[in-house]
Amino acid sequence: MNSLTDRLVSLMIGSAAALVAAVLGWVLLDILYRGIGDLSWEFLAQPPEDAGRSGGIAPIIVSTMLILMVALIAAVPLSLSAAAALAQQRHRRFGWAWIASRCLDVLAAVPSVVFGLFGNAFFCVALGMGYSILAGGLTLACMILPILIHTTEHGLRAVPADYHYAAASLGLSRTTTFFRITLPAALPAIAAGLVLGIGRALAETAALIFTAGYVTRQPESLMGSGRSMSVHIFDMAMNVPAGDGRANATAALLVAMLLIINAAAMSLASKASAKLSGQTAEDMNSRQYV
């Protein structure tokens, strides 16, 4: 009797898991399949025509990359520095590092449309940037900051304590130890986190509509308005009649980019763990001979 229930449960769990995999696989392949036919060199290299129904998405790709660049330039140094401080602290409950981490947890969960509201009120209106690449990029920077800090902090914490003891015994200062030893050792893990942050930024839509704006032409400068690929998908699908074809093509391109980014993050992450375990083994060996 018991084994019958066991089999029944196995069957239920197995079929639920298969259903999940099937639906998720269906979504992914369906998106790629619908859009891939329209992808061509012209699509990548030409400006949109007829409200986007024909032509390509070249200026939109440029805007997307500019927004991403602004976001990374603003967020990466700050996240690295903040993670360096947090990784050195034991997170005692209600200590400052614990409080800072909880604040970042909440920031990570703020809905993207609320970031849009904030970005519009703060960057566009209060700081007078208007709808611009700069305002959109800085709003995105606030959004990806928590994930960058989180992954960087984990990367730094994974560096074995032996490294620090060795550095301290050689009389290196904490600053030197950080830049010469901890940072290089944690670099692949940090890069993996960075790639994840890029993926998150590329996927973002709601925060950009009211900060970076809507226009399809190529932005002249960072103060110009520009439309990201995700906003383009939304606009083509919802606001432009018969825009579905181009929306599908842009979606397929975006998903393909994210697949590549994801693969890069995975290989970097596995490299990170290999590097740290490999190096310790090497160090052990060389120590025997010295």
Binding site: V27, A203, E204, A237, N248
Partner: peptide, 11 residues
């Protein structure tokens, strides 16, 4: 799948 943009799911 957790990284697929919501606008793509919407489409």
């Amino acid at each position: 799948l957790s990284g697929i943009p919501s606008v793509v799911f919407g489409l």
